[in-house]
């Protein structure tokens, strides 16, 4: 009699335990995504694309067809895939560097074109894989390897407000939300809605997730949670930012 593991059905069990650092938020985001895939029953037609950076460690995370692409290029790969075969459910998974820096032109233009894909962007305020450099999302005053005296907004600007930007440039029909690993149940709901929105053919669906990086933050468990719950939320407001108008099919 095997033990029933508390893992989503769509997880690939032989690649667990996963490859992320202890305390990393990716596992929680991918659990929420796995649950959403299970609940929607789309394991057979979802295609999961992950970026370069820590997200690449998830290339074999799911029992879902997957493509690990280049840095910042997951959005166009999933866009091209979805355009070529609209029956697939395209999921582009990336970090804040991939989405808001090197791949920002892809994010902006895919959003502006209202590409019918789902983008999940994990925001941990710095570049994790390369050793903790400043990212577009680094908090004012936050110390990183390339802002060792703290980010000075006068010199390097304020954190990118990604979902707010995406909400501003997308049309009605788009879904935009910011979740947090501190509230996994809410996060799963956001991701599920973002996938449902794509399946309904409404258009671009975007979820940013506030996440943790104790390795590069050099924080203990208590400080890690305090940073994600108290500090990050000073700049990054959690909640749904753009919700499509009700679809008339829903009344049936």
């Amino acid at each position: 009699m095997s033990v029933q593991l508390a893992m989503p059905k769509s997880w690939r069990i032989d690649t667990k335990p996963h490859k992320f650092c202890p305390g990393c938020g990716h596992g929680l985001v991918l659990k929420a995504l796995g649950q959403a895939i299970d609940e929607l029953g789309i394991q057979d037609r979802a295609v999961y694309g992950c970026d370069i950076g820590c997200s690449l460690l998830s290339w074999d995370f799911f029992n879902v067809d997957s493509i690990q692409t280049h840095h910042g290029r997951t959005t166009p790969v999933i866009t091209g895939l979805k355009r070529a075969n609209p029956d697939l459910v395209g999921i582009a998974y990336m970090g804040d560097g991939g989405g808001y820096a090197i791949g920002s032109q892809h994010l902006v233009n895919a959003a502006a074109r209202n590409e019918n894909i789902t983008v999940i962007l994990v925001n941990n305020t710095q570049y994790g894989m390369t050793g903790g450099q400043m990212a577009p999302t680094t908090m004012p005053g936050q110390k990183t390897e390339t802002s060792p005296y703290g980010r000075d907004p006068q010199k390097t600007g304020y954190p990118t407000q990604g979902p707010e930007m995406v909400a501003a440039i997308t049309r009605e029909g788009a879904y935009v939300a910011r979740g947090t690993v501190a509230n996994p149940k809410q996060l799963k709901g956001f991701i599920k809605k973002a996938l449902e929105n794509q399946i309904a053919g409404n258009g671009f669906s975007f979820v940013e997730v506030l996440s943790t990086c104790p390795t590069n933050w050099r924080t203990n468990a208590e400080e890690t949670w305090k940073f994600v719950e108290k500090e990050m939320t000073k700049y990054f407001k959690v909640g749904e930012i753009k919700v499509p108008e009700p679809r008339h099919e829903e009344g049936k």
Partner: peptide, 25 residues
């Protein structure tokens, strides 16, 4: 079909996506 992309990085990577989906791209 046709998609005009934001640059050639995107044109190349969307072509990659089209091929992955099993279409002559």
């Amino acid at each position: 079909n046709f998609l005009q992309t934001e640059d050639e990085l995107s044109a190349g990577f969307t072509t990659v996506g089209g091929v992955l989906a099993g279409r002559k791209s």
